[in-house]
Simulated assay, not measured.
Amino acid sequence: MLTSTYTLDLLYEDQWITLVNKPSGLLVHPSWISHPDEPTLVGLLKERYPDQVVHTVHRLDRATSGVILFARDKDAVKSLNAQFAEGSVKKTYLCVVRGWTDDEGTIDYALKPIYDKFADPLADPDKAPKPAITHYKTLARVELPIPVGRYPVARYSLVRVQPETGRKHQIRRHMKHILHPLVGDTNHGEGRHNRLFREHFDCHRLLLMATELHCQHPVTQAPLHFKAPLDAQTLSVFDRLGWENIQLFEV
């Protein structure tokens, strides 16, 4: 597996768990659409722990960066899966969206499951929508003197998001639902705004970052709080937007 283009950015490791700051563009697992030699985060972890099975307890999309948690034994898997099932794991994201969002709000909007018909040909595409809740808070706003469509200026918001549920593409779909799609989202976003960030900021990624994770240690039960710093390119974009002094993490 060709893993030389990526290195592990470890946030924490012990004999039971490992936390990594995943870069945007890196798959967590091999996919039916990926090349057999394409690097994955699981592949990098197998190289680090060649004599151990590393278990995935949650996922991040390829385009999303940030903190992701892995278990390193079966007891840790059971404990962490139980925490996710009961909703006691708290995940926090940052995203940049089109328009000026309200100061804060809660999006309570059921989402129909998204299935990959190639990976799961028996999946029922007509299943009913599932409850989905997302809380958000606006950290900053900006107005750029760049025309977009019929508007003479372009407006964007920096938003801290905390999903209460874990539906596929939940943040991306919920923000689109309230008419504030994420910048860089090629599935649920707007091409004009994605193009603006590519052309004016040389930003070619989805601006969705998993920045914080709260959980209990699966063995010691100690409360854990992990933070994933933003990459240099994203911080550069934030600086150019005038957001260099924004408090990005929860205190």
Rank of each mutant, 00 (worst) to 15 (best):
D9I: 12
Y12H: 10
D14I: 03
D14C: 01
Q15N: 15
Q15V: 05
W16K: 09
W16T: 13
L19T: 10
P23K: 02
G25A: 13
G25T: 12
I33V: 10
P36W: 10
D37K: 11
E38M: 11
P39Y: 01
T40R: 14
D51R: 08
D51I: 06
T56V: 15
T64H: 08
S65G: 05
I68R: 07
L69C: 13
R72N: 00
D73I: 05
A76K: 04
K78F: 08
L80N: 01
L80W: 00
Q83E: 01
E86K: 09
T92E: 06
L94I: 05
V96W: 07
R98M: 12
W100M: 00
D102I: 01
D102M: 11
T106I: 15
K112T: 04
P113T: 08
I114C: 10
Y115I: 04
P125V: 09
K127L: 11
K127H: 04
Y136W: 09
R141L: 10
V142N: 13
L144T: 06
I146A: 05
V148C: 02
Y151H: 14
V153W: 02
A154W: 00
L158C: 12
L158A: 09
V159S: 05
V159H: 13
R160E: 15
E164V: 14
G166M: 07
H169W: 14
H169C: 14
H169V: 13
H174Y: 06
K176R: 15
H177Q: 15
L182V: 05
G184K: 03
N187A: 15
H188S: 07
H188D: 10
H188P: 07
R192D: 07
E199G: 01
E199S: 03
D202I: 01
C203V: 00
C203H: 00
L206T: 09
L208C: 07
L213Q: 02
V219D: 08
A222K: 11
L224Q: 10
K227C: 00
D231W: 08
T234D: 05
T234G: 00
L241C: 06
